[in-house]
Amino acid sequence: MNEIYSIMENVARINLFMFEESHDIPPKYTKQTNKIKNGKLSLNPKYDKLILEEIEWYNQVNTIRDNVNHFLTGIAVFNRLDDNTIVPQYFNYNMSERNQHNININDENEDNEKLILGL
């Protein structure tokens, strides 16, 4: 997850280099994509279309990464549900006072405080 985040941040840096003279571009990838989604930034029609239609998965990956890196201690793994849906699982302790940051406690294993992100 950190690797995906790093790649996207490097994409943002490349955008700054390639388009810096013609646009007011934020340095962070998420801020760039938010401006594109809000119609406040356009870098290239094909790139804009990709951001608008194909990159929603990144928001899910970034949410998991942020939770693991900034608010939890432990590890994150991936598992499959009975219907073959892939879900991230946290085997962690919450170090944050935030309101569970979109995570539901799995009642089956309260001793380990096993947390599952509800995607």
Score class of each variant (00 low, 15 high):
38 N>K: 14
107 D>K: 15
5 Y>F: 15
68 V>G: 02
45 P>Q: 12
32 Q>F: 05
59 N>P: 07
14 I>E: 10
10 N>E: 13
96 S>P: 06
78 F>G: 00
58 Y>P: 01
74 G>K: 03
82 D>H: 11
5 Y>W: 13
42 S>A: 10
2 N>Y: 09
57 W>P: 00
43 L>W: 02
98 R>F: 04
113 E>Y: 07
92 N>V: 14
55 I>M: 10
97 E>L: 06
69 N>W: 00
82 D>C: 05
19 F>Q: 00
33 T>Y: 02
71 F>S: 04
44 N>Y: 06
96 S>N: 10
110 E>K: 07
9 E>W: 01
38 N>M: 11
65 R>D: 02
4 I>S: 08
117 L>S: 02
65 R>M: 01
25 I>S: 05
108 E>A: 12
64 I>H: 03
72 L>V: 02
80 R>C: 01
80 R>L: 04
102 N>Y: 07
53 E>A: 10
50 L>W: 08
10 N>D: 14
37 K>Q: 05
51 I>V: 14
102 N>R: 07
33 T>K: 01
57 W>I: 12
7 I>K: 11
65 R>S: 10
13 R>C: 13
38 N>Q: 14
109 N>D: 11
90 Y>V: 03
66 D>Y: 08
14 I>R: 09
64 I>C: 08
72 L>Y: 04
8 M>S: 05
5 Y>S: 08
4 I>C: 06
97 E>S: 11
11 V>G: 04
92 N>A: 15
68 V>R: 05
33 T>A: 01
75 I>N: 07
67 N>A: 00
57 W>N: 11
39 G>L: 10
79 N>Y: 01
92 N>C: 15
7 I>C: 08
74 G>T: 04
10 N>F: 12
33 T>G: 03
18 M>S: 07
22 S>Y: 07
89 Q>R: 09
43 L>A: 01
103 I>P: 00
56 E>G: 15
5 Y>R: 14
45 P>M: 06
70 H>E: 04
39 G>Y: 10
16 L>E: 13
63 T>R: 01
90 Y>R: 03
10 N>Y: 12
10 N>Q: 14
80 R>E: 09
100 Q>N: 11
67 N>H: 08
87 V>T: 12
37 K>G: 05
113 E>C: 13
26 P>V: 11
8 M>E: 05
42 S>H: 03
28 K>Q: 15
46 K>Q: 07
80 R>K: 11
16 L>S: 11
65 R>G: 09
15 N>P: 09
62 N>M: 09
73 T>C: 09
77 V>E: 04
83 D>W: 04
77 V>K: 04
66 D>F: 01
86 I>G: 08
38 N>S: 12
49 K>C: 02
64 I>N: 03
86 I>E: 15
30 T>C: 13
46 K>R: 12
84 N>H: 14
119 L>Y: 10
88 P>H: 02
111 D>N: 01
94 N>G: 00
32 Q>Y: 10
18 M>Q: 07
18 M>P: 05
53 E>S: 14
82 D>I: 15
100 Q>A: 12
52 L>I: 15
67 N>C: 01
71 F>T: 08
12 A>Q: 04
78 F>I: 05
13 R>V: 14
